[in-house]
């Protein structure tokens, strides 16, 4: 069992620019209204698998603990189910802030971001090519990228889907793929953060 940890973080050690980054996303400034009630942590279906609960992560954001937050397993445990956001009495867009933390960690190539980054990259590659997600190709790419040997363990799942016609080879494609790619390029240019 973990003992009680006492951490005192004095103001001069805080990275307050971090808070500004969070304010930068639409609705991000609502984090100012957090009353640390813990409804998010109590509602989260996966808080048991996190290192820091969502409530604690929000306290850490406001204390400017940038590295600790972006290196936390918590952000990679969030399944984006929106239960916290649904229940937050202060209407903070918790799930969207979690998404933002994921983006920052991926951009900075934080160690724990790599698996989710691999999945997102495979997904983006497939969609950039066809405009649609071909699930068979996504699963194959992701398995090869993250765990070529371990993917043998996934094979029964793949085979059971395949044998029931649920993992087709090939698939459909967006007709105006050029137009879609232009939208994607422009969005990436404007996306920022």
């Amino acid at each position: 069992m973990r003992g009680v940890q006492e951490t005192v973080l004095y103001e001069e050690a805080m990275d307050l620019k971090f808070l500004d980054e969070v304010y930068g996303i639409p609705g991000g400034d609502k984090i100012k209204d957090c009353i640390q009630c813990g409804t998010c942590s109590g509602s989260c279906p996966v808080s048991w698998a996190m290192e820091e609960s969502p409530r604690k992560i929000f306290a850490m954001i406001r204390a400017g603990m940038r590295d600790q937050v972006l290196d936390s397993l918590t952000i990679w445990t969030c399944a984006s189910c929106y239960q916290c956001a649904e229940r937050c009495p202060q209407e903070i867009k918790i799930t969207d802030i979690m998404y933002m933390l994921k983006r920052m960690a991926i951009r900075e190539d934080r160690r724990r971001s790599r698996k989710a980054r691999a999945l997102s990259e495979c997904f983006v590659n497939v969609v950039n090519r066809y405009g649609r997600n071909r699930e068979t190709e996504l699963m194959a790419r992701f398995a090869l990228m993250t765990d070529p040997l371990g993917s043998v363990a996934l094979a029964p799942v793949g085979m059971s889907l395949f044998s029931r016609g649920r993992l087709p080879l090939g698939g459909s494609k967006v007709r105006d793929i050029e137009g879609l790619r232009k939208i994607v390029a422009k969005a990436q240019e404007l996306g920022g953060e």
Binding site: I25, P26, S80, D96, Y99, M100, K102, R103, I106, A116, R117, L119, S120, F123, V124, V127, G131, R132, N133, V174, R175, D176, L180, I183, V184, K186, A187, Q188, L190, G191, G192, E193
Partner: peptide
């Protein structure tokens, strides 16, 4: 000519891009 909605994967990459996919 619908396109992928971006699922949860695009939100991990770029928020504006994710909205653009659904907006199209």
């Amino acid at each position: 000519d619908w396109n992928c909605c971006g699922a949860t994967a695009y939100m991990n990459v770029n928020e504006v891009l994710s909205f653009c996919l659904s907006a199209r």
